[in-house]
Amino acid sequence: MEVEVYKCKNCGAPIEYTPDSIVIKCNYCGYYEYLNPGFQVFVLESLDKSKMEEIFWNRMRNDSQMKKYINEISLEQMEGFYVPVYYCNYFAEYFFIGEKVVTRTVRNSKGRVTTRIERIKVSDEGEKSGSKTLPAKKYIEELGIKELCFQVESLIELEKANLAKAEEIKWNFKGEILAFDFNPEEMKKIFEDIIAEEIKNEIKNKYGLSEIKILSCNVNIKEIIPVYVPIWIASYKFKDMIYSISFNGKTGSQLVAMEPMFKSQRILSVILSSIITVLLTFMLSSLFLSGLFLFLNTEILILFLIFIIILLSASMYFMNRAFKGERIER
């Protein structure tokens, strides 16, 4: 392992260097230096901090709930990050053999009804192409990263030809610049793995498979672009509590907002939970106590039970929501 001590190219002062340094700033003369990670990195340039603050206040003024309390809100912090992401373009071919469980109701010549469960072999092949964007981090926990990746995907696709190069831009960004945890070669493998996993799940759902006997999936990454994308996180104080909202630093659009939970919203959640529970009781009682379930065939009965489980989790979700500390808006 080599440890190097960096000196400012402008004034010669020693610069603190960490294993993850990408852009280093001299504390004495303010000179910025971009350290090339060994591959060409592009940048979606961020709006500046004052512009982001303006966007935050506009958002608050236009919010139906929060605009009533605009005088009680104070912006505590506006934190910016350049997040490393990889954009890729892929083409995948797949082939699979699987099994599907089917229930069949048959009426024989004497008029008796029997239900049989059968396993049917299903096999098919196909292809898929598309694009995908993922953070180049092993682990990251900023608010709204997934939404950011989703939003920048189309931006990168549009501007692919004229993206700014990392070494050519002025790095006077007032925030943190996160390092790339993977190089393009490593990321290619990760993309292949994740896309194949996605295709596997898609196939399972699309064909209703209970088991996959064989799946062969060839993912071909046609193009891979490392890009720095900006995210800004605003922390605001409201009634002594701190909440955050994250914004796309390129377009200024909101990614995820954490908002206070008001009493009226808690009551609404309880009411919703109550209504769903009543509906559930009604359905269960009418089905099992009137003997209706004896006349239904297995397939419909299974569907019915699934529906009941969905309803029960919905009512529990609303009940849980009534006691949440904050509301998340995406």
């Binding site: 529970t277 559930l280 009781t281 269960l284 009682s285 106590l289 529990m316 009940m319 849980n320």
Partner: peptide
């Protein structure tokens, strides 16, 4: 029977 189902479903829903 309905009373029991109603009670059980109610308790389950409000468990959070």
């Amino acid at each position: 029977g309905g009373f029991v189902i109603g009670l059980l479903v109610g308790i389950l829903s409000s468990s959070p």
